[in-house]
Amino acid sequence: MAVGLHWVGSGLLGQAMTQPTGERWNLALEGLSVTMGSARWIAGLYFNLSTLLASGVPLLRALSIAAQNADRRASRLLIQISEDIRRGLDLPAALGRCKVFGRFDLALISAGEQTGRLDESFKMLAEWHYLRNRLNRTAVAALIYPAVILHLAALVFYLPALVLGQIGVFGYIRNVVVFLGQFYLIGIVALIGIRFIRRSRLFADVLGMMLVRIPLVGRPFLNLAICRFARSFEMMYKAAMPIDHALNEAARFAGPPIRAAIRAASTAVAAGQPAYSGLLGRLPAEYVEMWQVGEECGQLDKAVEKIGQLASERAQYGLEQLARWLPRLVYVVVMGMVVAMIFRVASQIGAGYQIPLD
């Protein structure tokens, strides 16, 4: 199974890859009608720009075409980017002013601009963001059914007490709200925690190191980190950046699970040793073997490209498996709470029918 745009069998980019070039543009541009700044919006924009640039369309003309087919807010953003470029800013600087595109995106775009491979950079980023969007939608869709079961359980299992007159309507509503409120509170705290962690490098690193040690979760997140590293290193290495500098720059986007391994590889290069010697024992053996072969054969860029593809495939598979198992874990929790509620309601009903013994 190929990666990114090639493995998408349905959806916006998957349809675009199966159409003639002229029709691909229109299909890709449909992605600009979704929420600006979302992974799908960014993936659609990147894919569109990649296709246009690969077809020989100049950058400013490509931005103009994208703006014409976008909604009003996105169109203003793309026009502003074009104006900044005309005023002398390079593309990464113009994109950076928008506060929509991440550091990882800007680094790859900068490397692509330096190497004259801007279309490839946009294609890589389109694949990356579409992968993120697909995995996010898979996880959300998998949680919908457990959430429905949870709400139905809260509504149904307080009904006997209401029917028997043990609680009034107000008490019934209060019990349902209190029960569901626990889960909403956990969700709100989790969202706040995620936003805080994203802003704190220290907490993000600690969380990343914890995630890779959790069964079923660790391996996909490790492969995602390797994929990010491979994508960024490939473009920077193609930009004729010295290998140790490329390693240090790519380490910024790799994530804590493999950052130490990449820095060890950079240290090895600075000491006159091959980079793979610093990766031994720190990354999965198959990735190190691929790196070693590429480095020894003088085709490190192609080897790293293959590493990125393999890591992406494995991350996708692992996270899809996680998305399948996560609802089952939620089912177990919900059913455990439902059973506890059944016993509690049954005991209340039984207590109501107890006959005092003289």
Rank of each mutant, 00 (worst) to 15 (best):
M1V: 15
A2L: 03
V8N: 10
S10V: 14
T18L: 07
E23R: 07
E30K: 13
W41I: 06
Y46E: 04
F47T: 10
N48I: 09
L49D: 01
P58N: 11
A66G: 02
N69Q: 13
D71A: 11
L77F: 02
I79Y: 12
S82W: 03
D84G: 07
R87F: 06
G96E: 15
K99A: 07
V100M: 06
A107S: 11
L108K: 02
S110T: 01
E113H: 04
E113V: 00
D119F: 06
F122S: 05
W128M: 08
L131M: 08
N133K: 03
L135I: 09
I144S: 13
V148D: 14
I149T: 15
H151Y: 13
L155Q: 03
L159C: 00
I167A: 02
V169L: 06
R174G: 06
N175S: 01
V177N: 07
F179Q: 10
I186C: 14
G187F: 15
I188Q: 08
I194Q: 03
R195Y: 01
S200D: 15
A204Q: 15
D205P: 12
D205T: 09
V206Q: 06
L207G: 09
L211C: 08
P220S: 01
A225N: 06
C227N: 02
R228G: 03
R228V: 04
F229N: 01
S232V: 07
E234C: 04
M236L: 10
K238R: 12
M241F: 13
M241K: 04
D244G: 06
N248F: 09
F253L: 13
F253W: 09
F253K: 05
P256I: 00
R259Q: 15
A265C: 07
A275G: 11
S277T: 11
E286N: 03
Y287F: 10
M290K: 05
V293D: 01
G298W: 05
A311I: 02
A315T: 05
Y317R: 05
L322T: 04
A323I: 10
V332N: 07
A346D: 00
S347R: 04
S347Y: 09
I355S: 13
